[in-house]
Amino acid sequence: MIDGLLMIGAGFGAGLFGSLLGLGGGTLIVPILTLGFGLPLIKAVGVSLVCVIVTSGAASGVYLERRVANLRLGMTLELFTAVGALVGGLVAFLLPERLLEVLFGALLIYVAVTMARRREPARAAGDDAAPDDSVDSVEPEDPAAVADGSLAARLSGPGYRVHRIGFGAVGSVGAGVVSALLGIGGGLVKVPVMHVVMGVPLRVATATSNLMMGITASAGAVIYLLRGGIDPYVAGPTAIGVFIGASIGSRAAHRIDLRILRGLFVAILLYTAWQMLQRAIA
């Protein structure tokens, strides 16, 4: 009973702070379950993928209703993230756990450094995974606003044109592999690829990435689920906690001064990365 409540609380904390800082729950769930509850990393990743799906599902609905996400671009790229997730999900069961722990430690360091260098909340580049009331409306992609018949034009939206679809596809495969290997949404890869490489406005890239997270995590989660990588007694309480925490966090994010929280979080992420690497080496 107490463990169950603790796990709900841990999920709540991961969802709340992940949402406040634009990280999504995945980055935090895996270290909490492995370092805090002693779960094998592979099972923590499976649970984390479920959490990514439930939080991104609710958020994506909001983004679509508000016409922020680019559905055509998202669906085209998620074909590639799904392929990456399929590969990552299969490879995850073949890799030694220590190697996965090293990879996760490196991911945490990368997130901490990215967060430390960022002036605004990390929502733009992270696994933003919960409904966000602060999102302004952006018109959806509009086939009638397309000047020519090229694929790039068809995937573009009003006011911007998509470039380098090939790079986007390759980046999406990478995002899918990372997602399924480490149990994250993959927004850390997808948002920069869409925004910097493909020329998609940041807000649209964030919302579109969120939409893609569902299928990306789902393609990986199916493999974890059928191969015994998801424990329902762990996934249930954690998913409920993350969902509630992310919902509250996304509504509170724009009312809270996040500078101190972000600084504290960078320290926690670096400490967690150190713990994860120590565990891998030990």
Binding site: I53, G57, M75, S218, P232, G236, A239
Partner: peptide, 16 residues
């Protein structure tokens, strides 16, 4: 729990 987890994992595919 399993029905909920299956529904969660299947929801993105239902969207597609």
């Amino acid at each position: 729990l399993w029905l909920g987890l299956i529904a969660a994992v299947a929801t993105p595919a239902a969207r597609v």
